[in-house]
Design a protein around this nucleic acid. Sequence first.
DNA 1: CTGATTTGACCGAT
DNA 2: ATCGGTCAAATCAG
Length: 271
Amino acid sequence: MTSPSQGNPSTEAAIEELIKGREAATRLGVFLQEATLGKSAIEAFKEVLDSFSRSLSVLDSGQPLKNPAIIGVGGRNQLPSRIVKSKTLDDGYTWRKYGQKEIQSSKFPRAYFRCTHKYDQGCKAIRQVQRSEDDEFIITYMGEHTCREPAMLPHIISPSYLEGSCLISFRSNPTDNRQEAPLPSSFPSYKQECHEEVLSNLSPGSSSSAYVTLSAAYEGSKLMTPLGSTSDHGDVTSGFHSSTSSLHYVGFGTDSFEDIFAFDQDGFLQD
DNA sequence: CTGATTTGACCGAT
DNA sequence: ATCGGTCAAATCAG
């Protein structure tokens, strides 16, 4: 990946500082989480984080950020969860939407997905998707995929990202995105972009919390093709596609903390 | 025809 | 009582 920041000492220094600042902010976020502060405090905190992230993005433009900042621990239930900000809903897995809800704290509805293989393979992974103000999606993944997604190529990102190698590369073809749309189809083209940032990574059990994402690989071997629409599991849906992307952990944790995202912008939902 | 999405109802937690 | 998450019937799409 080419990055303008590369080879530019001053820019890199700036990035370094920003990363430090962001880390400090995320640490602060943990306290904010524990202390029951007012919403304004949380909003302010969110702005700080956003600023760091934006600055980093600008300077870094695409370069994977190192030093992921992880805020918060543990989801509201036992499920390991992580929050990812992405421009695409494709993560290599097939999801089935089972609900959508207007959420009080954010003006955009939240869409609920469960793994397509919930019943045929007992996969417990679920995710919640919300649109953010920048035409991106805030995706909260909960639970681990225990399914053996045909389309997934065994590219498991181990918890190593906790050590700084937060690189998750995606890549595939945009096949069918519809099911990915958290809302009525008014999402223009969230498919061609593949930017992701892991806003948070929380895995209580940390053990096998490895989040799986597929990568470059399965191009050419689309095992996932809709088995003729006769498959018993018949849950072939979503598309997958991805592409190399850079992500940053900007993190924070619990679901409630999600309120930090006071997405304000129209357009998410609408038909 | 089969499977996915939509959407209101239902339910549990707060 | 309210809010968020899930269910499930109706509807849509391939």
